[in-house]
Structure formats: C-alpha cells, structure tokens
Design a protein around this nucleic acid. Structure first.
Lengths: 138, 138
DNA sequence: ACGCAACTTTCCGTTTACGTAAACAGCGGT
DNA sequence: ACCGCTGTTTACGTAAACGGAAAGTTGCGT
C-alpha cells in the first residue's frame, strides 16, 4: 500500500500502487526498469517508487500515447537528468531539446492538417446528408 | 517507370516508383496491400498504382509518423471510402469521424503540453548557463 | 513456527510491422 | 536464344513491447 516508510513527508508507492493508478501491469513497470527508464529504490528485494519515479512514469505513458518508442522516450527523459553544473552538458541538452522541439512542432502541424481534412470530409458528408433528408421530407 | 498505359491523361506508378518516391521498400507496399489498405490494379501480375493509391499511401505514411497502428489508419481510410448515397452510412461516418477528431485533438493538447514543458526546461538550462558563463567571464 | 499473500527473477510466448532470402516469370536489348 | 532487370509469390526471420506462467523468497498475521 501507498505510505511513508521513513519519518520524512515523502510519499512512496509499491509496484501495485502504480500499476493500479495508471492501469498498467506490474510487468510493464519492470520492463521500463529493465530498459533503464525507471530506477526505483529497494527495501530488501521489493521495489519502492518515489514521487520522482511517478512523474517519470507519467512522462513515459504520455510519450507512448503520442506514439514514441521507448528509446525515444528514454532520450527525452535524459534531457531532464542532465547535470546542470557542466557547461557542455547544458549546451548539449539545449541543443538536443531544440531538435526534439522541432520534431514535436512538426507532429503538431501534421496532426492539425489531419484534423482539417477530417473536418472538411465531415462537412461534405453533412451536406450530402442534408440534401437527402430534405428530399425525403417532400 | 512512371507513365500512362492508356490514352487517357491519368498517371500510373509501378511499385518501385512509389517505393522510391516515399523512401519505403516494395515489401512495405505489398504489406499494406496484404492488410487491405491498398488495392492497386494489375497488368498481368504486375501492380499498377493510380493517383488514388498514391494519395492513400501518403495518408498511411503520415498516420505512421503520428504513431497510429495500421488498423487505426485503416479505419481512418475507411472514412473516406464510405458510400455517400446511404443515409445510415453518412450518419455513421460522421459519428466515427467525430470520435476520431476528439482523439486527434486530445493528442494535439498532449503534444502542446510536452512542448511547453520542454520550453520551460530549456529556459531553466539557458538561465543556468548564462550565470556560469558570466562568472567565468570575470 | 506456519501459512499465505505479495513480490521477486527467469524464461518462453505473442503481436505488429515489416525484413530477407529463395525460387520463379515476363520482357526489352543484343 | 540468352542476359539482366524488374517484378511476383511463398515463407521463414526479426525487433519492440510487453504477456503470462513457473518457481523461489519475504514479510506479516495468528
């Protein structure tokens, strides 16, 4: 169950807390760990997820909904993990972030084109339907 | 090669025309046919793709870039193939189209949230970088 | 101390979306 | 008639992202 194993005010989650909360299987969470996208602490052999892990999981699942592969999502997570004390790291993360941003914007554009086309199709179909219905109404 | 086998002014494409034009393999085109997403004509055993097939292929590839599965894309293509003379078909296509539109809009929203978060991260990193660089400049 | 539920690791299975030969057919050029 | 190219079908292989079952361990309630 969800709780606090220490005396601090941090919230902890078991693997089943998270799988229930996000409607995924424990197997999926272990898989994300296998490929290095999550790294929960251990109490003995049991996994203990912190708030940080929960946030990362949310990012992973959103990435999946958006159609990204796990390696792609992994790269995006890495952006948040960069060491902010090293100049080269900062420059690198900005550069990689900009590249990803351009990609995401392109995807938004294509989505909006798709939406536009579907709206036009819908209008056409609605128009035909109106004509048929008024004819039948005679 | 791309050409016109008849005397009309329609353009035809071989399987290699299309695979070269869209940078995919012939195998991929045959696969889309296997799963019923394309249906080129035949001259003997050879596939002949018309403009209509080319447009459908564009839709398929865009769908893939947006992260949709082939069955999902297949459903979207079906929207364009609905018989516009049947009232029930028209109503059905409008309903299914609206459902897909809601989905697409949701995807746009999630993408824009992701973009926003990356922009904030970028600003944070840029800020840290500026501080470090001015310190070094002393 | 005992049982049992919750967790663990390990490993083989499955689906999607093709990749990759193998083996054959038709056709334009020499 | 033979070559090479382009195309075809058939069929097994593969990577990604888990699913699912087996077998072992651990902590907790009584």
């Amino acid at each position: 169950m969800e709780g606090q194993p220490g005396l601090n005010h941090e919230t902890w989650y078991t693997i089943n807390d998270l799988s229930a909360a996000f409607d995924i299987t424990a197997r999926t969470l272990r898989h994300y760990e296998d490929v290095g996208m999550l790294a929960p602490l251990r109490r003995g052999s049991q996994r203990l997820y912190r708030e940080r892990d929960r946030v990362r999981l949310q990012l992973i699942l959103r990435g999946r909904r958006l159609g990204f592969s796990l390696p792609e999502i992994h790269d995006m997570l890495d952006l948040y993990d960069a060491d902010p004390s090293e100049v080269t790291q900062l420059q690198d993360v900005i550069k990689r972030g900009d590249a990803k941003l351009a990609e995401l914007q392109e995807q938004v554009d294509e989505l909006q084109t798709t939406i536009q086309e579907l709206l036009e199709l819908r209008a056409k179909m609605q128009h035909r339907l109106d004509i048929i219905l008024t004819q039948e109404g005679l």
